[in-house]
Nucleic acid binder design. Structure first.
Length: 208
DNA sequence: CGGAAGATCCACT
DNA sequence: GTGGATCTTCCGA
């Protein structure tokens, strides 16, 4: 019994991994202190065929090079020159499929996570890791972890408890309006009614 | 070589 | 609801 997800977990289609990552634990070690969040929101990106992906049309550069690693590695990049985003690479080497981790809920080390998020006022209860940039701040994830294996001492994924299918919401991805038809692909997954999810669920209208 | 846009977050109106 | 921060990359001239 291992407490780290095996490579085989990641070498599946991004869409499958994105769903299966909900409820799993993202474990980060900073200065020998453990920080853990439970993943509650993800998005799949489908490599060359996906106009929203950094690998669209087979694009490759220094920045996105680690996207082409085999499943089970980290792809970290800087957005808007300001914030980091953390992705789990999936599939086989060279496919450039990945899952963006958009939000998590604190499980362990919440105090340290809040401290690292301090810039700009005190976070609300649901605001420790409720967004891709926030999550990276909370877990002290930056470009140094770009390309790192997800089974290492610094960063790893633990089995946690997968979220049952009926508790998962699915919809289109956030912030990819430039991607044409791909912008509407239903590749965003989140745990229903979880307060840490980064944005109110569109389908929630009418429901409650 | 210059301009534009981006998988975001926060302060301000 | 709107705009600024700030850096990498892409594309057209």
């Amino acid at each position: 019994m291992s407490d780290v997800l095996p490579p085989s977990f990641f070498r599946r289609p991004a869409e499958v991994v994105a769903l299966d990552l909900l409820g799993r634990w993202l474990v980060r070690d900073v200065a020998r202190r453990r920080r853990v969040v439970r993943i509650v929101e993800t998005e799949a990106y489908l490599g060359a065929a996906d106009a929203a992906s950094h690998a669209r049309g087979g694009l490759r550069s220094r920045r996105n090079d680690s996207l082409y690693l085999p499943g089970g590695h980290a792809y970290v990049y800087l957005v808007y020159g300001v914030h980091h985003c953390f992705n789990v690479v999936t599939g086989a080497r060279g496919m450039a499929d990945a899952v963006l981790i958009r939000a998590g809920e604190p499980i362990e080390g919440e105090e340290e996570m809040r401290r690292d998020r301090h810039r700009g006022g005190r976070p609300e209860p649901g605001d420790v890791a409720g967004g891709p940039g926030k999550l990276c701040q909370a877990l002290a994830i930056d470009l140094e972890l770009d390309g790192a294996p997800l089974s290492g001492p610094e960063l790893s994924l633990a089995p946690g408890e997968p979220v049952a299918a009926e508790r998962v919401c699915r919809g289109s991805r956030i912030g990819v309006g430039y991607a044409g038809e791909a912008a509407e692909w239903p590749l965003r997954f989140a745990e229903r009614d979880n307060r840490h999810v980064s944005r109110p669920w569109p389908w929630k209208r009418g429901g409650r």
